[in-house]
Design a protein around this nucleic acid. Structure first.
Length: 1086
RNA sequence: GGGCCUAUAGCUCAGCUGGUUAGAGCGCACGCCUGAUAAGCGUGAGGUCAGAAGUUCAAAUCUUCUUAGGCCCA
């Protein structure tokens, strides 16, 4: 027997109940166990960092990430849903630095590397429980007991495995990169890159940190004169805002297409002596007017013609036979300075050009910000020492190498921690040659299904096209260690990349297990600082090698979770599970991951795939991906603490519950920016949850009255409502299934909303009488069986979306009467749509019936005739081409509109005016420019002509032949008749009231009053009553004429007309202005 | 500065390959219903489709530009 249903449902309480049920019965575990041996559906969960709290955007993520695993489990797949946590990376170190009040790497050194790293480790899981709670609260099934964590030894060894793969792989000799720098052809190689760097803190900064610290400052800028080699009195003029970088100048850059002039000074000026010739961009002449004064242009040349010219360095100690030449590059502009740029190894573009041009890598200011001994008279000076600029300036001036100086205001980055001026410094790092397998990554991308589609060729494709080699290391402390050892002898090139702990054991000089044993955590620990104490004999010279002091980019770390989560390949058993769990069918993250996780997964898995001989379509470790957008507040602003517009997810759960919160994310495309508000989320309760609950509760109420139970061999009903709703259910099943298979959630949700409307506002509404009528006939059985199936299947289809309410309904509708059924809706089979249950013809007839009803209601409203007042007849005109047969649906319409008769009129009734409208779709191609002339003719066609066309005859009008398909016939109602039209369906209601109709209407009013009294008396729907009333005259006549009907409607066993004095319980009411006195009394059944 | 996305009713969003009068839900107004009832239903008002130009017989839809917002990267 079905359990009774709480009318006053509180969804957050239902959440508790169902989640408790899941826990106690280990439903999640069973989704794993019961699908063992089934085909795998592979889902990868991206690892969030847990030193921050989850926000509403993560709820969107969770809602989506939970949907497909549930769906696929029901579809018969085995789905592993392993949680993951990102436990490395800069955010953790920044938190630690802040809390320990450490401002620099030097501070960290003096605090103690080991203590610092211990502290980092201790903060990693600070909000892990908060995360776990939020994930559970939204009803997500996720294995958080066995998560993958990037800090484990198994995971780190996966890092090592992949790095070793890259290290072993070499460029082919014909690949150009090998020629450029003559460096290691390995796919893992050491190089430099320019990073924002604080010399005082000894730390490079992330872009984000740099952005924190820009300030407007006034600096002394100067324009130096570089003497052209072999030409007396000819100089290049180059401008700089950082005089100290001149100490490391190695080249000058010009724009290839920029016009440069050599101007000869006519007199001595502050910038030079008469006769000297200065080279600068023509466009910049004007701004040097003061220094140049009177001059003459000697020649004009394009920048590219200056390329290769040699010049003398500003100081003797800078001499280097490979340096001090001019090169041309597009990046040079004439926006400021002289249009000639001095290059030193303290800028990103500089670095690129210096490298491309094969210039020496000179840095005369060291990483502490002091001039090196090689910097002549400036050795030992601090780079931002104010006098340094002035001394350089004076020195140049004294040797007539200064064209000009001025104060210049610009914005310059400062260290956000210590306020010192930053410099851009070349830092070492280890790189993976991603650029050399760009084409392979593009091929891999071609096999990925992106939602939304434009990401594939757009944002992500563009990013791949522009891939440069990937710096996978950071000069930090807390992270996966780079497993690369290089020879202590600087002359020796020996290096070794270690691919696993076992390999390290075999290779190391020391006893690895002893050195790496971390007392505090009681196990081997591969992190710094222990790993730094391991040495390996050099394969080249046999001397000891020391580990390169880097940790891995945490993006690299996270990017190889496809092997890392199993600890592949070093963990026993990982190969077997990896083979089954690669590649992922589905991942889902926010759009910022195109440069993050989406990219790093692809970059690592493509390398992995190529090296392991996987086919091209498996180079990407994910096949389908949904990119979600941001969740904003209802003003379209980013939620942030400072604006105070953050919606705490727990508020949603406490007020609305998990299902409603989830649903509010499913109803719009997740790849569009979502404006989110609590009010909007509340709509999910009102629009979906309550109507579902009401429908379910309605069913249970009547099932209890009739003690109905489903039987195994239901004969299919031929009632049109039943056949129709089953067809719509099947259609829903088909549409939801295909949408979800395409990873397109919103249309699936919309289809559910539409079905719910059809179920509640039409099927149940129109079937109510079938449930409450007293005969227990086949029709009633059919109604029960149909509604039962609709609710049951609907709950199955909703299960991936709203796991709670669907579980509750399933438990009652299925499990409470069939203990052999799957224990949970989430272990049940997804219903298979039987497509021949969709009767398209019936569906379109039903559609017309609903339109007729709408038009009829419209008329009643316009003429203020209540639905309780029966009317004689309704006339309906249905457009040509539509189904004219409403047989079987006639009763529905009559009942809904409370009319006695319905007649379908042929199209030529006087009710209707025929109008022809041009069908541009066919006319356009036929008439082209003359389409408007033809359209005019069509609009002025008379009814006869239209009828001819309607009857499929072509006609000629004004020499133009019109075909039937050229017009669209519009049946409009003339303004002055009581007629209404809804989407082509026109109806007329007969509003004339006969005495009989009036009597009927009044007795319906009486029934209405009695029903209200039943409700007020708290009677059960099946309780019988005795009815007493008093009235006279017209109203009494009406009651007498409908007595039997009134009795059956109100379940009155007897009706007594009484005098007012006879019964004190009589309650005074009014019907149509007549007084009536009524009392009811419940009949006690024995 | 570059790439990508977005702009449609008061709000949140649909609108496919150009083609009838641009749709839905919410909100609002009015009304209905009441044997799902601290629910339910209907009708109505409300739009120069961000702006401009172009292609076309025809543009919310295609092209270009502009404006505003967003994300990512420099």
């Amino acid at each position: 027997m079905f359990k009774t249903v709480i009318k006053n449902i509180k969804f957050p309480e239902l959440d508790n109940k169902i989640m408790k049920f899941w826990d106690e019965n280990e439903i999640f575990l069973k989704t794993d166990q019961e699908r063992q041996g089934c085909p795998e559906f592979v889902f990868y969960d991206g690892p969030p960092g847990t030193n921050g709290v989850p926000h509403i955007g993560h709820m969107l993520q969770s809602a989506l990430k939970d949907l497909w695993p549930r769906f696929k489990t029901m579809r018969g797949y085995h789905v592993i849903r392993k949680a993951g946590w990102d436990t490395h990376g800069l955010p953790i170190e920044l938190t630690a630095e802040k809390e320990l009040k450490l401002a620099s790497k030097r501070d960290i050194q003096s605090y103690g590397e080991e203590k610092y790293i211990d502290y980092c480790r201790s903060t990693v899981f600070r909000y892990k429980e908060t995360w776990e709670k939020a994930i559970r609260r939204i009803g997500r099934f996720l294995d958080m007991d066995n998560p993958y964590m990037t800090l484990t030894n198994d995971y780190i060894q996966s890092d090592w495995y992949l790095l070793k793969l890259a290290w072993k792989k070499k460029l082919k000799p014909d690949q150009t990169e090998a020629q450029i720098n003559g460096k290691s052809p390995r796919f893992l190689y050491k190089d430099y890159r320019i990073l924002p760097y604080c010399a005082r803190c000894g730390t490079s900064l992330s872009n984000f940190e740099v952005a924190e610290g820009y300030k407007d400052v006034t600096d002394l800028t100067l324009t130096a004169k570089f003497p052209v080699a072999g030409e007396a009195n000819l100089f290049f003029a180059a401008w700089t805002t950082t005089a100290w970088t001149l100490l490391s100048n190695v080249a000058l850059a010009v724009g290839p297409d920029i016009d440069y002039v050599a101007v000869q000074l006519k007199e001595d000026t502050s910038g030079g002596k008469a006769g000297q010739k200065i080279i600068l961009a023509k466009e910049r002449l004007e701004s040097y007017q003061k220094q140049l004064s009177e001059y003459e242009i000697v020649w004009t040349k394009k920048g590219r013609d200056l390329q290769g010219m040699k010049y003398y360095p500003l100081w003797d100690w800078q001499e280097d036979k490979y340096a001090h030449r001019v090169l041309a590059d597009e990046y040079v502009t004439t926006e400021d300075g002289t249009g000639i740029v001095h290059l030193a190894l303290y800028g990103e573009d500089d670095f690129r050009l210096i490298r491309q041009g094969g210039f020496p890598l000179v840095q005369n200011v060291d990483e502490d910000g002091y001039c090196k001994d090689s910097a002549g008279q400036f050795a030992g000076r601090y780079f931002k020492d104010e006098n340094l600029d002035i001394d350089i300036l004076k020195d140049l001036h004294s040797r007539d190498l200064l064209l000009g100086k001025e104060k210049h205001e610009h914005s310059y980055p400062f260290c956000y921690r210590c306020n010192a001026a930053l410099m851009y410094f070349a830092r070492p790092g280890w790189f993976i040659r991603t650029a050399s397998y760009r084409d392979e990554m593009l091929k891999a991308n071609s096999h990925i299904n992106w939602q939304p589609g434009h990401i594939k060729e757009g944002r992500f494709g563009n990013w791949l096209e522009n891939t440069i080699d990937w710096n996978v290391t950071r000069e930090r402390y807390w992270g996966s260690p780079l497993p690369l050892w290089t020879c202590d002898d600087p002359e020796c090139q020996g290096e070794l990349c270690v691919g696993s702990l076992d390999e390290l054991r075999r290779s190391a000089i020391e006893d690895v297990d002893k050195i790496l044993f971390n007392q505090k955590i009681g196990e081997i620990d591969l992190h710094k600082p222990l790993i730094d104490r391991v040495h390996i004999p050099c394969p080249e010279c046999g001397k000891p090698m020391t580990r390169e002091n880097f940790v891995l980019d945490s993006w690299f770390n996270a990017g190889l979770m496809f092997i890392g989560q199993w600890g592949y390949p070093s963990t026993p058993g990982s190969r077997e599970i990896f083979d089954k769990q690669y590649p992922a069918d589905f991942i889902c993250e926010a759009i910022d991951q195109t440069r993050g996780w989406f990219y790093t997964l692809l970059a690592t898995s493509t390398l992995f795939g190529m090296e392991n001989g996987l086919p091209e379509d498996q180079w990407s470790c994910y096949k389908n991906v949904i990119c979600t957008e941001l969740v904003l507040d209802n003003e379209g602003l980013k939620m942030s603490k400072s604006k105070g517009n953050v919606i705490d997810p727990s508020i949603l759960f406490d007020e609305l519950g998990a299902d409603a919160t989830r649903w509010s994310f499913y109803t719009s495309n997740p790849w569009n920016v979502k404006r989110f508000s609590l009010d909007q989320a509340r709509e999910s309760v009102r629009d979906m949850l309550l109507p579902i609950w009401n429908a379910y509760s309605f069913f249970i109420t009547y099932v209890h009255v009739d003690k109905w139970t489903p039987s195994a061999e239901e004969t299919p009903s031929d009632h049109p409502l039943d056949r129709w709703i089953i067809g719509e259910l099947t259609r829903l099943n088909r549409d939801v299934t295909s949408s979800l298979e395409k990873y397109d959630v919103a249309p699936a949700a919309w289809a559910c909303t539409k079905f719910l409307d059809q179920l509640t506002n039409w099927y149940i509404r129109r079937s109510r009488r079938r449930f409450w009528k007293s005969e227990d006939d086949q029709d009633k059985q059919n109604a029960y069986a149909t509604l039962y199936r609709a609710l049951k299947d609907f709950s199955l289809l909703l299960a991936p979306f709203m796991p709670i309410i669907s579980e509750e309904i399933y438990q009652n509708l299925v499990r409470s009467i069939d203990k052999s059924a799957p224990e949970s809706v989430h272990l049940a089979k997804w219903p298979q749509p039987v497509l021949n249950e969709i009767d398209e013809e019936l569906a379109s007839r039903m559609d017309i019936a609903r339109k007729i009803v709408r038009a009829g209601r419209d008329l009643r409203q316009k003429h203020s005739v209540k639905v309780r007042q029966p009317l004689e007849d309704i006339k309906v005109v249905i457009p040509n081409g539509a189904v004219t047969n409403v047989d079987g649906l006639r009763e529905l319409i009559l009942d809904e509109l409370n009319v006695k008769d319905l007649c379908i009129l042929s199209g030529d009734d006087e009710l209707i005016q025929l109008k022809a409208k041009p069908n541009f779709r066919t006319l356009g191609p036929k008439y082209g420019k003359n389409v408007n002339h033809t359209a005019g003719i069509i609009r002025s066609l008379n009814e006869n002509q239209i009828r001819q066309l309607e009857n499929n005859f072509a006609i000629d009008v004004e020499d133009i032949q019109l075909a039937p398909e050229d017009i669209i016939i519009d049946r409009a109602a003339p303004e002055d008749v009581a007629v209404s039209e809804v989407e082509g369906v026109t109806v007329a209601l007969n509003l004339k009231l006969s005495d009989d109709l009036i009597d009927e209407g009044r007795s319906r009013e009486l029934v209405h009053l009695i029903q209200n009294m039943r409700k007020d008396a708290d009677l059960n729907v099946a309780d019988r009553i005795r009815l007493s009333y008093h009235t006279d005259g017209e109203l009494d006549r009406a009651i007498q004429s409908q007595l039997d009907w009134i009795k059956s409607e109100t379940l009155a066993t007897e009706v007594k007309k009484v005098e007012r004095s006879q019964n004190a319980d009589l309650i005074s009411q009014k019907i149509d202005g007549f007084d009536v006195y009524i009392s009811i009394e419940k009949v006690e059944t024995s």
